[in-house]
Design a protein around this nucleic acid. Structure first.
Length: 399
DNA sequence: CTCGGCATCCTAT
DNA sequence: CTAACGATAGGATGCCGAG
């Protein structure tokens, strides 16, 4: 196979742009993108953080992930907008639909990012850069928000390129440009090189992506595992063979976690939360017609440390009460009563055969459903009707 | 020694 | 004064005990 042509399309300040477009379309005269603003949680809650910020907000030193309260200290006029995931889904679908007109081989990388395999389109589109401009302009003109497009021979380089100067830009990162455009960047800007890896590399006097590209692989192996060392070496050299795949992968786990308004120290509150969470996880499993073999509880103590404790069970389950019972058990086994700020529940080791088997036994299935309903009812009765409700805490819960 | 299970770490949006 | 701070998911890694 010859050389590929890959695009990475990234919406500029996605959530904020989408809020801005939505408000303008409703007759608002203020464009949020032109003033210090961000999408974030309720500033009065301790858990609220900045999700996406406008470019003017960035100029005040406001960064993604910081508490809204500190952002407001940096810029008291900051406009904080609550997230609206319905809107984002709609906008996401709209821009992906436009891109889909250009190629069937597309991979949704996140709500606002797409990889496109444009290989073999030389006859239809002889100039890839012109094509990239066309796509980005079409999105801007039809939908009202801007994107960056990265053009390269693989996904990694396309992704790195789309991250260059913003907004509303097309950048290329072809093999002969890697030295000039990518190697001078700090290692931490390499996709896949996060805070921890960057820090270790700094300590090894590997400061830029170029330093990393030229580093001895055995040196890397002395600090990182085989896969990480390998990845770092190839990525820094702009090498990536991973294909653009359009099937969305099946979930490998289903999890919920809730950060509480105040630290929790009693089992009663913990159990209520676990029940609400078991209900969320179980119904998501049922919605996808799968079951889970492993249930894990997660908690974060007030010192911000995360802990987890899980167990593999004999028969996979999608039943709220079963998951709840296991979760309570697990929590009893590991939690010594330290104040908790977060409690979560995860179902993994997904079983995709359970439902098929059940449909062979129609009667049994009905029987099971009845039991399930009964179990849920008994729990509801035990704790009152409000207990089987999602915990209403946190900023980014989907509806 | 290898493998499954588990806890934790790391990274991403 | 400092650190403070979400939800969700996938993969890597290291340890431990069983076979």
């Amino acid at each position: 196979m010859g050389e590929r042509l890959i695009f990475h399309v990234d919406v500029n300040s996605a959530f904020l742009s989408w809020e801005a477009v939505d408000r303008l379309s409703k007759g608002d005269t203020l464009d949020l993108r032109t003033v210090p603003s961000c999408v974030g949680g309720d500033p009065d809650k301790r858990t609220s953080i900045v999700s996406t910020k406008s470019i003017p907000a960035k100029k005040y030193g406001i960064v993604t992930g910081e508490p809204v309260a500190t952002a407001l200290r940096k810029c008291p006029e900051l406009i904080v907008v609550k997230p609206n995931f319905h809107l984002y889904q709609k906008m996401s679908h709209a821009f992906k639909s436009i891109l889909n007109e250009y190629t069937p081989l597309m991979q949704s990388f996140s709500i606002d990012e797409v990889f496109m395999d444009m290989s073999g389109m030389e006859l239809l589109h002889p100039d890839p850069i012109k094509l990239a401009h066309e796509m980005k302009d079409k999105i801007r003109d039809e939908l009202g928000f801007t994107v960056n497009v990265g053009v390269a021979n693989n996904k990694l380089c396309a992704k790195m390129a789309s991250d260059f100067e913003k907004p509303d830009k097309v950048h290329t990162l072809f093999p002969d440009e890697i030295k000039d455009k990518m190697w001078p960047l700090p290692v931490g800007e390499l996709f896949g090189c996060g805070q921890s890896t960057a820090k270790k590399l700094q300590e090894m006097h590997i400061k830029t992506i170029g330093d990393l590209a030229l580093a001895d692989e055995r040196f890397l192996l002395s600090v990182f595992g085989q896969k990480t060392a390998d990845y770092l070496h190839y990525a820094a050299n702009g090498i990536d063979d991973s294909p653009v795949v359009n099937e969305e992968r099946e979930a490998k786990s289903y999890s919920v976690e809730n950060t509480t308004q105040d630290d929790v120290t009693d089992f009663d509150t913990v159990n209520h939360l676990l029940l609400a969470e078991a209900d969320v996880v179980a119904s998501r499993l049922r919605a996808d017609e799968v079951k889970a073999f492993t249930i894990t509880v997660i908690y974060r103590t007030s010192d911000m440390k995360r802990h987890s404790h899980g167990r593999k069970i004999e028969n996979s389950t999608d039943i709220t009460s079963e998951i709840y019972d296991i979760a309570v058990d697990l929590m009893k086994e590991c939690w010594k009563g330290e104040p908790l700020r977060l409690i979560g529940l995860s179902a993994s080791d997904i079983d995709r055969d359970g439902f098929q088997q059940m449909s062979l036994f129609g009667e049994e299935e009905k029987e099971k459903q009845k039991k399930l309903d009964k179990a849920l009812d008994s729990i509801r009765n035990k704790y009152g009707n409000n207990s089987v409700m999602r915990a209403g805490i946190g900023v980014f819960r989907n509806d």
